[in-house]
Amino acid sequence: MTRRPSTRAVAWGVLVVSLLLAGVVSFYAASTPDGLTKVSEDQGFADTETDHATADSPLAGYDAGLGNERLSGGLAGVVGVLVVLALGSGVTLLVRRTASETDDTAPRA
């Protein structure tokens, strides 16, 4: 068996790739309408879309409002990755904590 990278190393790898994708590569993403948006335009129901309740969010539309499109989009992406990581990890922790509290067979910490 060859030596394999640690879980910690893989985790850092996934995080760095995610930050690069959201912070840098996203600038080069296609700006044409996505599948549903295009269909709604072609079929004539795009105008049924109503105003978005969080349209005034400082990060609405993945635009951090720095004036520079590359920086604004990149910063929004990085913030998004970190917020999602924090919430996702938090939910995971919560699930595991309640599991160990209710499961009698789980080892006590």
Binding site: V17, L21, A22, A29, A30, T32, G77, G80, V84, L85
Partner: peptide, 25 residues
């Protein structure tokens, strides 16, 4: 430990619209 990171990766990848046929992504 990977669950939160998979969430982050999915979020990041969802920002990457790729072109498909006819001015659609």
């Amino acid at each position: 430990p990977l669950a939160g990171l998979v969430a982050a990766f999915v979020f990041a990848t969802q920002m990457l619209n790729f072109p498909v046929a006819g001015g659609t992504s």
